[in-house]
Design a protein around this nucleic acid. Structure first.
Lengths: 220, 220
DNA sequence: GCAATATTCTAATAATCGTTAGAATATGCG
DNA sequence: CGCATATTCTAACGATTATTAGAATATTGC
Protein backbone atom coordinates (compact mmCIF):
# COMPACT_ATOMS: atom_id res chain seq x y z
CA UNK A 1 0.00 0.00 0.00
CA UNK A 2 1.05 3.57 -0.68
CA UNK A 3 2.82 5.05 2.33
CA UNK A 4 1.50 8.52 1.57
CA UNK A 5 -2.11 7.37 1.55
CA UNK A 6 -1.57 5.50 4.75
CA UNK A 7 -0.31 8.57 6.55
CA UNK A 8 -3.13 10.66 5.13
CA UNK A 9 -5.57 8.21 6.60
CA UNK A 10 -4.01 8.39 10.05
CA UNK A 11 -4.02 12.19 10.17
CA UNK A 12 -7.53 12.17 8.78
CA UNK A 13 -8.69 10.22 11.78
CA UNK A 14 -7.05 12.55 14.26
CA UNK A 15 -8.49 15.49 12.35
CA UNK A 16 -11.91 14.06 13.07
CA UNK A 17 -11.26 14.82 16.73
CA UNK A 18 -10.05 18.26 15.68
CA UNK A 19 -13.24 18.87 13.69
CA UNK A 20 -15.30 17.87 16.68
CA UNK A 21 -13.63 20.56 18.79
CA UNK A 22 -13.66 23.22 16.10
CA UNK A 23 -17.11 24.55 16.92
CA UNK A 24 -17.70 26.89 19.86
CA UNK A 25 -20.99 25.25 20.69
CA UNK A 26 -19.48 21.80 20.79
CA UNK A 27 -16.74 23.04 23.07
CA UNK A 28 -19.37 24.46 25.37
CA UNK A 29 -21.21 21.15 25.33
CA UNK A 30 -18.00 19.33 26.21
CA UNK A 31 -17.36 21.67 29.12
CA UNK A 32 -20.88 21.13 30.41
CA UNK A 33 -20.57 17.37 30.00
CA UNK A 34 -17.32 17.50 31.94
CA UNK A 35 -19.52 18.39 34.92
CA UNK A 36 -21.36 15.09 34.63
CA UNK A 37 -23.94 13.22 32.62
CA UNK A 38 -26.85 15.29 31.23
CA UNK A 39 -29.88 14.83 29.01
CA UNK A 40 -30.13 16.46 25.60
CA UNK A 41 -32.73 18.83 26.91
CA UNK A 42 -30.57 19.93 29.84
CA UNK A 43 -27.56 20.34 27.59
CA UNK A 44 -29.53 22.41 25.10
CA UNK A 45 -30.76 24.68 27.88
CA UNK A 46 -27.30 25.10 29.43
CA UNK A 47 -25.68 25.90 26.09
CA UNK A 48 -28.55 28.09 24.86
CA UNK A 49 -29.28 25.86 21.90
CA UNK A 50 -32.43 24.46 20.37
CA UNK A 51 -32.81 20.79 21.19
CA UNK A 52 -32.47 19.96 17.51
CA UNK A 53 -29.23 21.78 17.11
CA UNK A 54 -27.85 20.38 20.34
CA UNK A 55 -28.72 16.91 19.08
CA UNK A 56 -26.90 17.56 15.81
CA UNK A 57 -23.78 18.74 17.61
CA UNK A 58 -23.92 15.79 19.98
CA UNK A 59 -24.08 13.52 16.99
CA UNK A 60 -20.78 14.94 15.74
CA UNK A 61 -19.20 14.54 19.17
CA UNK A 62 -20.48 10.99 19.29
CA UNK A 63 -19.09 10.19 15.85
CA UNK A 64 -15.71 11.40 17.11
CA UNK A 65 -16.21 9.18 20.18
CA UNK A 66 -15.76 12.10 22.53
CA UNK A 67 -19.14 11.41 24.12
CA UNK A 68 -21.32 8.39 24.75
CA UNK A 69 -25.09 8.18 24.90
CA UNK A 70 -27.25 6.16 27.23
CA UNK A 71 -30.99 5.88 27.46
CA UNK A 72 -32.38 6.82 30.85
CA UNK A 73 -36.12 6.38 31.01
CA UNK A 74 -37.56 8.48 28.23
CA UNK A 75 -34.53 10.69 28.02
CA UNK A 76 -31.16 10.15 26.44
CA UNK A 77 -28.23 11.05 28.65
CA UNK A 78 -24.84 11.97 27.27
CA UNK A 79 -21.52 11.78 29.05
CA UNK A 80 -17.87 12.20 28.11
CA UNK A 81 -16.23 8.98 26.95
CA UNK A 82 -13.38 9.43 29.39
CA UNK A 83 -11.41 11.75 31.61
CA UNK A 84 -8.92 12.25 28.79
CA UNK A 85 -11.64 14.13 26.92
CA UNK A 86 -12.02 16.69 29.67
CA UNK A 87 -8.23 16.89 29.79
CA UNK A 88 -8.31 17.67 26.06
CA UNK A 89 -10.77 20.49 26.67
CA UNK A 90 -8.53 21.93 29.38
CA UNK A 91 -5.52 21.54 27.11
CA UNK A 92 -7.19 23.34 24.22
CA UNK A 93 -8.41 26.15 26.41
CA UNK A 94 -5.02 26.53 28.07
CA UNK A 95 -3.25 26.80 24.72
CA UNK A 96 -5.79 29.41 23.69
CA UNK A 97 -5.33 31.35 26.93
CA UNK A 98 -1.58 31.16 26.59
CA UNK A 99 -1.18 32.20 22.97
CA UNK A 100 -4.29 34.03 21.83
CA UNK A 101 -3.93 37.64 22.85
CA UNK A 102 -7.54 38.25 21.86
CA UNK A 103 -8.72 35.74 24.42
CA UNK A 104 -6.49 37.15 27.14
CA UNK A 105 -7.91 40.60 26.54
CA UNK A 106 -11.49 39.33 26.42
CA UNK A 107 -11.03 37.58 29.76
CA UNK A 108 -9.31 40.51 31.43
CA UNK A 109 -12.09 42.84 30.43
CA UNK A 110 -14.97 40.68 31.49
CA UNK A 111 -14.98 39.45 35.00
CA UNK A 112 -12.35 40.58 37.43
CA UNK A 113 -9.87 37.88 36.50
CA UNK A 114 -10.38 34.73 38.54
CA UNK A 115 -7.35 33.53 40.45
CA UNK A 116 -5.24 31.04 38.50
CA UNK A 117 -3.84 28.30 40.69
CA UNK A 118 -0.53 26.51 40.47
CA UNK A 119 0.48 23.25 42.13
CA UNK A 120 1.57 25.03 45.31
CA UNK A 121 -1.56 27.16 45.66
CA UNK A 122 -3.80 24.18 45.08
CA UNK A 123 -2.20 22.20 47.85
CA UNK A 124 -2.22 25.08 50.28
CA UNK A 125 -5.88 25.76 49.48
CA UNK A 126 -6.73 22.16 50.30
CA UNK A 127 -4.77 22.37 53.55
CA UNK A 128 -6.60 25.50 54.61
CA UNK A 129 -9.95 24.00 53.63
CA UNK A 130 -9.14 20.83 55.57
CA UNK A 131 -8.26 22.83 58.68
CA UNK A 132 -11.37 24.96 58.24
CA UNK A 133 -9.48 28.19 57.72
CA UNK A 134 -11.41 28.83 54.54
CA UNK A 135 -14.75 27.55 53.31
CA UNK A 136 -14.65 26.26 49.74
CA UNK A 137 -18.07 26.32 48.08
CA UNK A 138 -19.11 24.63 44.86
CA UNK A 139 -21.72 26.92 43.34
CA UNK A 140 -22.71 24.63 40.46
CA UNK A 141 -26.10 22.90 40.43
CA UNK A 142 -26.30 20.14 43.03
CA UNK A 143 -26.32 17.31 40.47
CA UNK A 144 -22.96 18.46 39.15
CA UNK A 145 -21.56 18.58 42.67
CA UNK A 146 -22.83 15.06 43.20
CA UNK A 147 -20.98 13.63 40.24
CA UNK A 148 -17.65 14.88 41.56
CA UNK A 149 -16.28 17.93 43.36
CA UNK A 150 -13.17 19.39 44.95
CA UNK A 151 -12.23 17.74 48.25
CA UNK A 152 -13.60 19.58 51.31
CA UNK A 153 -15.92 21.67 49.16
CA UNK A 154 -19.56 22.03 50.13
CA UNK A 155 -22.39 22.38 47.67
CA UNK A 156 -23.96 25.82 47.58
CA UNK A 157 -25.59 26.34 44.19
CA UNK A 158 -25.63 29.96 43.16
CA UNK A 159 -29.38 29.73 42.66
CA UNK A 160 -29.90 28.88 46.32
CA UNK A 161 -27.11 30.99 47.73
CA UNK A 162 -29.21 33.97 48.78
CA UNK A 163 -31.58 31.84 50.86
CA UNK A 164 -28.79 29.81 52.40
CA UNK A 165 -26.41 32.59 53.38
CA UNK A 166 -26.97 31.77 57.04
CA UNK A 167 -25.16 28.45 56.58
CA UNK A 168 -21.90 30.23 55.91
CA UNK A 169 -19.71 31.25 58.87
CA UNK A 170 -19.44 35.03 59.09
CA UNK A 171 -15.76 35.48 59.83
CA UNK A 172 -14.12 33.06 57.45
CA UNK A 173 -12.95 33.62 53.93
CA UNK A 174 -15.15 32.00 51.30
CA UNK A 175 -13.59 30.54 48.16
CA UNK A 176 -16.02 29.88 45.32
CA UNK A 177 -15.53 27.78 42.21
CA UNK A 178 -17.77 26.59 39.41
CA UNK A 179 -17.21 24.97 35.99
CA UNK A 180 -13.92 26.63 35.16
CA UNK A 181 -12.49 29.95 34.04
CA UNK A 182 -15.23 30.60 31.46
CA UNK A 183 -18.05 30.01 33.93
CA UNK A 184 -19.64 33.01 35.55
CA UNK A 185 -21.45 31.35 38.40
CA UNK A 186 -18.61 31.85 40.87
CA UNK A 187 -18.35 35.51 39.91
CA UNK A 188 -22.05 35.92 40.60
CA UNK A 189 -21.67 34.14 43.92
CA UNK A 190 -18.73 36.27 45.00
CA UNK A 191 -20.60 39.46 44.12
CA UNK A 192 -23.56 38.33 46.22
CA UNK A 193 -21.33 37.33 49.12
CA UNK A 194 -19.40 40.58 49.14
CA UNK A 195 -22.67 42.46 49.04
CA UNK A 196 -23.56 40.74 52.30
CA UNK A 197 -20.30 41.52 53.99
CA UNK A 198 -18.45 38.28 53.39
CA UNK A 199 -14.81 38.07 52.50
CA UNK A 200 -15.04 36.05 49.29
CA UNK A 201 -12.95 35.26 46.25
CA UNK A 202 -13.22 32.95 43.28
CA UNK A 203 -10.74 30.61 41.70
CA UNK A 204 -10.42 29.67 38.03
CA UNK A 205 -10.35 25.94 38.65
CA UNK A 206 -13.28 23.69 38.03
CA UNK A 207 -13.22 19.93 38.45
CA UNK A 208 -11.64 19.41 35.00
CA UNK A 209 -8.75 21.73 35.80
CA UNK A 210 -8.34 20.04 39.17
CA UNK A 211 -8.17 16.63 37.54
CA UNK A 212 -5.82 17.86 34.83
CA UNK A 213 -3.50 19.06 37.60
CA UNK A 214 -3.33 15.46 38.75
CA UNK A 215 -5.38 15.96 41.90
CA UNK A 216 -8.21 13.75 43.05
CA UNK A 217 -11.87 14.66 43.21
CA UNK A 218 -14.26 13.71 45.98
CA UNK A 219 -17.60 12.08 45.33
CA UNK A 220 -20.35 13.11 47.77
CA UNK B 1 -22.92 43.42 28.32
CA UNK B 2 -24.92 40.30 27.55
CA UNK B 3 -23.55 37.30 29.42
CA UNK B 4 -24.52 34.96 26.62
CA UNK B 5 -22.63 36.93 24.00
CA UNK B 6 -19.64 37.11 26.26
CA UNK B 7 -19.48 33.35 26.65
CA UNK B 8 -20.00 32.86 22.92
CA UNK B 9 -16.98 35.05 22.32
CA UNK B 10 -14.79 33.05 24.69
CA UNK B 11 -15.69 29.69 23.16
CA UNK B 12 -15.30 31.20 19.72
CA UNK B 13 -11.70 31.99 20.50
CA UNK B 14 -10.93 28.50 21.73
CA UNK B 15 -12.71 27.10 18.68
CA UNK B 16 -10.17 28.96 16.58
CA UNK B 17 -7.54 26.63 18.00
CA UNK B 18 -9.89 23.75 17.29
CA UNK B 19 -10.32 24.86 13.68
CA UNK B 20 -6.58 25.06 13.29
CA UNK B 21 -6.24 21.41 14.29
CA UNK B 22 -9.24 20.18 12.30
CA UNK B 23 -7.36 19.60 9.09
CA UNK B 24 -5.20 16.51 8.55
CA UNK B 25 -2.58 18.48 6.66
CA UNK B 26 -2.27 21.05 9.40
CA UNK B 27 -1.85 18.31 11.97
CA UNK B 28 0.89 16.80 9.89
CA UNK B 29 2.58 20.20 9.66
CA UNK B 30 2.37 20.57 13.42
CA UNK B 31 3.94 17.18 13.96
CA UNK B 32 6.77 18.05 11.58
CA UNK B 33 7.28 21.41 13.24
CA UNK B 34 7.44 19.66 16.60
CA UNK B 35 10.74 18.22 15.32
CA UNK B 36 12.19 21.71 15.00
CA UNK B 37 12.14 24.84 12.90
CA UNK B 38 11.71 24.39 9.14
CA UNK B 39 11.29 26.47 6.01
CA UNK B 40 8.05 26.52 4.04
CA UNK B 41 9.72 24.56 1.27
CA UNK B 42 10.96 21.85 3.62
CA UNK B 43 7.56 21.64 5.29
CA UNK B 44 5.78 21.36 1.96
CA UNK B 45 8.10 18.56 0.88
CA UNK B 46 7.75 16.66 4.17
CA UNK B 47 3.98 16.91 4.14
CA UNK B 48 3.62 16.24 0.41
CA UNK B 49 2.00 19.59 -0.25
CA UNK B 50 2.50 22.25 -2.87
CA UNK B 51 4.34 25.23 -1.43
CA UNK B 52 1.26 27.37 -2.01
CA UNK B 53 -1.01 25.09 -0.10
CA UNK B 54 1.51 24.65 2.70
CA UNK B 55 1.72 28.41 2.97
CA UNK B 56 -2.06 28.71 3.20
CA UNK B 57 -2.22 26.13 5.97
CA UNK B 58 0.64 27.77 7.82
CA UNK B 59 -1.25 31.03 7.64
CA UNK B 60 -4.16 29.44 9.48
CA UNK B 61 -1.83 27.98 12.10
CA UNK B 62 -0.20 31.36 12.49
CA UNK B 63 -3.56 33.10 12.90
CA UNK B 64 -4.32 30.65 15.70
CA UNK B 65 -0.90 31.45 17.17
CA UNK B 66 0.15 27.82 17.12
CA UNK B 67 3.20 28.66 15.02
CA UNK B 68 5.50 31.62 14.58
CA UNK B 69 7.39 32.73 11.47
CA UNK B 70 10.87 34.12 11.20
CA UNK B 71 12.81 35.25 8.20
CA UNK B 72 16.08 33.42 7.73
CA UNK B 73 18.03 34.72 4.74
CA UNK B 74 15.75 34.34 1.76
CA UNK B 75 13.62 31.71 3.40
CA UNK B 76 10.89 31.96 5.97
CA UNK B 77 11.24 29.51 8.83
CA UNK B 78 8.30 28.39 10.92
CA UNK B 79 8.38 26.94 14.41
CA UNK B 80 5.82 25.99 17.06
CA UNK B 81 4.95 28.86 19.40
CA UNK B 82 5.64 26.73 22.44
CA UNK B 83 6.04 23.27 23.89
CA UNK B 84 2.38 23.33 24.91
CA UNK B 85 1.51 23.16 21.21
CA UNK B 86 3.36 19.90 20.73
CA UNK B 87 1.69 18.68 23.92
CA UNK B 88 -1.66 19.53 22.33
CA UNK B 89 -0.78 17.47 19.27
CA UNK B 90 0.14 14.53 21.46
CA UNK B 91 -3.04 14.99 23.46
CA UNK B 92 -5.23 15.04 20.37
CA UNK B 93 -3.55 12.00 18.88
CA UNK B 94 -3.76 10.13 22.14
CA UNK B 95 -7.48 10.78 22.49
CA UNK B 96 -7.91 9.60 18.91
CA UNK B 97 -5.86 6.46 19.53
CA UNK B 98 -7.78 5.77 22.71
CA UNK B 99 -11.33 6.24 21.48
CA UNK B 100 -11.40 5.92 17.70
CA UNK B 101 -11.64 2.26 16.86
CA UNK B 102 -11.04 3.11 13.21
CA UNK B 103 -7.66 4.56 14.04
CA UNK B 104 -6.70 1.62 16.23
CA UNK B 105 -7.50 -0.76 13.41
CA UNK B 106 -5.67 1.36 10.85
CA UNK B 107 -2.56 1.38 13.01
CA UNK B 108 -2.68 -2.32 13.82
CA UNK B 109 -2.91 -3.20 10.17
CA UNK B 110 -0.11 -1.01 8.94
CA UNK B 111 3.19 -1.38 10.59
CA UNK B 112 3.80 -4.06 13.14
CA UNK B 113 2.60 -2.02 16.09
CA UNK B 114 5.41 0.05 17.60
CA UNK B 115 6.00 -0.48 21.28
CA UNK B 116 4.04 1.95 23.46
CA UNK B 117 6.01 3.06 26.47
CA UNK B 118 4.83 3.85 29.98
CA UNK B 119 6.66 5.73 32.71
CA UNK B 120 8.39 2.58 33.92
CA UNK B 121 9.53 1.42 30.48
CA UNK B 122 10.84 4.85 29.60
CA UNK B 123 13.01 5.01 32.68
CA UNK B 124 14.33 1.50 32.25
CA UNK B 125 15.10 2.20 28.60
CA UNK B 126 17.14 5.23 29.61
CA UNK B 127 18.98 3.19 32.25
CA UNK B 128 19.88 0.52 29.74
CA UNK B 129 20.93 3.12 27.18
CA UNK B 130 23.07 4.88 29.78
CA UNK B 131 24.78 1.62 30.73
CA UNK B 132 25.23 0.78 27.06
CA UNK B 133 23.08 -2.35 27.19
CA UNK B 134 21.07 -1.09 24.24
CA UNK B 135 21.86 1.42 21.52
CA UNK B 136 19.13 3.98 20.98
CA UNK B 137 19.21 5.50 17.51
CA UNK B 138 17.38 8.59 16.28
CA UNK B 139 16.63 7.90 12.63
CA UNK B 140 15.24 11.33 11.80
CA UNK B 141 17.19 13.76 9.60
CA UNK B 142 20.23 15.17 11.40
CA UNK B 143 18.80 18.68 11.72
CA UNK B 144 15.87 17.32 13.69
CA UNK B 145 18.21 15.42 15.96
CA UNK B 146 20.18 18.60 16.49
CA UNK B 147 17.20 20.58 17.70
CA UNK B 148 16.50 18.06 20.47
CA UNK B 149 16.61 14.30 20.97
CA UNK B 150 16.19 11.57 23.53
CA UNK B 151 19.01 11.38 26.06
CA UNK B 152 21.74 8.88 25.12
CA UNK B 153 20.40 8.56 21.58
CA UNK B 154 22.76 8.84 18.66
CA UNK B 155 21.85 10.26 15.30
CA UNK B 156 21.57 7.71 12.53
CA UNK B 157 19.26 9.07 9.83
CA UNK B 158 17.42 6.36 7.99
CA UNK B 159 18.74 7.75 4.70
CA UNK B 160 22.34 7.11 5.78
CA UNK B 161 21.76 3.95 7.74
CA UNK B 162 22.79 1.48 5.07
CA UNK B 163 26.19 3.11 4.61
CA UNK B 164 26.77 3.52 8.30
CA UNK B 165 25.81 0.05 9.51
CA UNK B 166 29.41 -0.58 10.56
CA UNK B 167 29.07 2.03 13.31
CA UNK B 168 26.57 -0.12 15.14
CA UNK B 169 27.84 -2.79 17.55
CA UNK B 170 26.89 -6.23 16.31
CA UNK B 171 25.78 -7.91 19.52
CA UNK B 172 23.64 -5.27 21.15
CA UNK B 173 19.98 -4.61 20.76
CA UNK B 174 19.16 -1.53 18.69
CA UNK B 175 16.15 0.62 19.62
CA UNK B 176 15.00 3.02 16.91
CA UNK B 177 12.67 5.99 17.20
CA UNK B 178 11.60 8.77 14.88
CA UNK B 179 8.87 11.44 14.93
CA UNK B 180 6.24 9.49 16.78
CA UNK B 181 3.78 6.66 16.29
CA UNK B 182 2.64 7.87 12.84
CA UNK B 183 6.14 8.12 11.48
CA UNK B 184 7.45 5.23 9.42
CA UNK B 185 11.15 6.01 9.45
CA UNK B 186 11.84 3.81 12.46
CA UNK B 187 9.92 0.93 10.88
CA UNK B 188 12.06 1.26 7.77
CA UNK B 189 15.20 1.36 9.89
CA UNK B 190 14.24 -1.72 11.88
CA UNK B 191 13.49 -3.64 8.69
CA UNK B 192 16.90 -2.75 7.30
CA UNK B 193 18.65 -3.66 10.54
CA UNK B 194 16.94 -7.02 10.86
CA UNK B 195 17.80 -7.75 7.27
CA UNK B 196 21.44 -7.35 8.25
CA UNK B 197 21.19 -9.58 11.27
CA UNK B 198 20.75 -7.00 13.99
CA UNK B 199 18.41 -7.42 16.89
CA UNK B 200 16.31 -4.26 16.50
CA UNK B 201 13.00 -2.88 17.63
CA UNK B 202 11.20 0.44 17.38
CA UNK B 203 9.35 2.47 19.97
CA UNK B 204 6.33 4.70 19.44
CA UNK B 205 7.81 7.69 21.24
CA UNK B 206 9.19 10.69 19.47
CA UNK B 207 10.51 13.77 21.19
CA UNK B 208 7.00 15.22 21.64
CA UNK B 209 5.77 12.11 23.41
CA UNK B 210 8.90 12.08 25.53
CA UNK B 211 8.37 15.69 26.55
CA UNK B 212 4.68 15.12 27.20
CA UNK B 213 5.66 12.32 29.57
CA UNK B 214 7.51 14.94 31.58
CA UNK B 215 10.98 13.73 30.62
CA UNK B 216 13.84 15.94 29.47
CA UNK B 217 15.38 16.03 26.02
CA UNK B 218 19.06 16.36 25.29
CA UNK B 219 20.47 18.95 22.92
CA UNK B 220 23.61 17.55 21.33
C1' DG C 1 -51.57 -2.04 22.11
C1' DC C 2 -51.90 3.12 22.15
C1' DA C 3 -50.91 7.76 23.03
C1' DA C 4 -47.49 11.07 24.66
C1' DT C 5 -43.10 12.75 24.31
C1' DA C 6 -37.93 13.03 23.79
C1' DT C 7 -34.81 12.60 20.38
C1' DT C 8 -33.05 11.94 15.88
C1' DC C 9 -33.32 11.89 10.81
C1' DT C 10 -34.11 14.32 6.27
C1' DA C 11 -33.96 18.11 3.37
C1' DA C 12 -32.66 22.66 2.23
C1' DT C 13 -30.08 27.04 2.45
C1' DA C 14 -26.37 30.16 3.42
C1' DA C 15 -21.78 30.44 4.95
C1' DT C 16 -17.19 28.64 5.28
C1' DC C 17 -13.13 25.81 3.87
C1' DG C 18 -9.64 23.35 0.89
C1' DT C 19 -7.46 23.57 -3.19
C1' DT C 20 -5.59 25.36 -7.44
C1' DA C 21 -3.64 28.82 -10.65
C1' DG C 22 -1.94 33.39 -11.56
C1' DA C 23 -0.41 37.87 -9.81
C1' DA C 24 2.10 40.35 -6.37
C1' DT C 25 5.54 41.07 -2.75
C1' DA C 26 9.90 41.15 -0.52
C1' DT C 27 14.50 39.85 0.18
C1' DG C 28 19.32 38.71 -1.00
C1' DC C 29 22.80 38.85 -4.36
C1' DG C 30 25.29 40.57 -8.26
C1' DC D 1 19.69 49.37 -8.89
C1' DG D 2 17.54 45.38 -10.75
C1' DC D 3 17.29 40.28 -11.30
C1' DA D 4 16.30 35.76 -9.30
C1' DT D 5 13.80 33.38 -6.05
C1' DA D 6 10.89 32.19 -1.88
C1' DT D 7 6.69 33.19 -0.14
C1' DT D 8 2.24 35.18 0.19
C1' DC D 9 -1.96 37.32 -1.67
C1' DT D 10 -6.17 37.21 -4.75
C1' DA D 11 -9.71 35.05 -7.06
C1' DA D 12 -12.32 31.16 -8.08
C1' DC D 13 -14.35 26.51 -7.80
C1' DG D 14 -16.36 22.61 -5.62
C1' DA D 15 -17.00 20.38 -1.29
C1' DT D 16 -18.26 20.65 3.55
C1' DT D 17 -20.67 22.71 7.72
C1' DA D 18 -24.10 25.13 10.72
C1' DT D 19 -28.57 25.98 11.16
C1' DT D 20 -33.55 25.62 10.65
C1' DA D 21 -38.06 23.38 9.91
C1' DG D 22 -40.76 19.31 9.24
C1' DA D 23 -41.13 14.23 9.30
C1' DA D 24 -39.90 9.97 11.50
C1' DT D 25 -38.46 6.93 15.29
C1' DA D 26 -38.43 4.73 19.74
C1' DT D 27 -39.62 4.18 24.41
C1' DT D 28 -42.39 4.94 28.51
C1' DG D 29 -46.60 4.80 31.04
C1' DC D 30 -51.23 3.70 30.80
Amino acid sequence: MNARKTKDLLYEHVAQIGKAVSSPKRLELLEILAQGEKTVEALAADASLSVKLASAHLKVLKAARLVEARRDGRNIAYRLSGPDVSALWVNLRTVAEEHLVELKLAMDGLFSAPEKLDAETRRSLMDKAKRGDVVVIDVRPATEYDSGHLPFARSMPVSELRQRLAELPAGKEIVAYCRGPFCMMSAEAVALLKEHGYRARKIADGTSEWLAAGLPLAKT
